[in-house]
């Protein structure tokens, strides 16, 4: 009987040691796993701050426009009929609709309430109270980078 008792004490101690080792190991793993994941950078390797790759020059023929994104807000790239590239915020200053380029008018237009902006982003007709915010465009090879002022 005592031998059995002693044996159960030993096995209890071994079980306790095993449990302790495992749970401490698991705790360590739970703490280290996020760390290992954290140090691997995400797909977008950089916080998009004030500059985005808005499009390609070759995809933007004269007298067209293209919507791009600054975070969750839309911007508009415009290539004028004479080939100049400009960029503006695409958020209409009237009720925040997204504006578009109208090749037939050769200027920027908002479909919601027929707001018109010229190719400098200035509100020229309809309800918009203010011009569109203008962005800076940099051309690097075929890439069009748009920078907004901080």
């Amino acid at each position: 009987m005592p031998a059995v008792h002693e044996g159960s004490v030993i096995s209890r101690r071994a079980a306790l040691n095993w449990l302790l080792g495992t749970s401490l190991g698991a705790t360590l793993a739970a703490a280290l796993y996020p760390v290992f994941r954290f140090v691997i950078p995400p797909e977008v390797a950089e916080a998009p701050v004030n500059r985005v790759l808005a499009g390609k020059l070759s995809e933007l023929p004269a007298n067209t426009g293209k919507i791009f994104r600054f975070g969750s807000k839309p911007g508009i790239l415009v290539r004028t009929a004479n080939g100049e590239i400009r960029a503006f915020s695409a958020v209409c200053t009237h009720l925040n609709c997204t504006v578009q380029y109208r090749p037939d008018f050769q200027h920027i237009w908002c479909a919601c309430h027929n707001g018109h902006y010229d190719l400098q982003g200035k509100n020229i007709a309809g309800p918009p109270p203010r011009p569109l915010e203008a962005y800076k465009v940099d051309i690097a090879g075929d890439d069009l980078y748009v920078t907004r002022r901080a």
């Binding site: 969750s72 997204t98 919601c112 309430h113």
Partner: peptide
């Protein structure tokens, strides 16, 4: 991060304004 959803909401908002028109 809800940027995509914000964009969808902008679209919805815009469509709603056009519905009111």
């Amino acid at each position: 991060l809800m940027d995509e959803a914000e964009v969808k909401l902008e679209d919805a908002h815009q469509a709603f304004i056009m519905a009111q028109v």
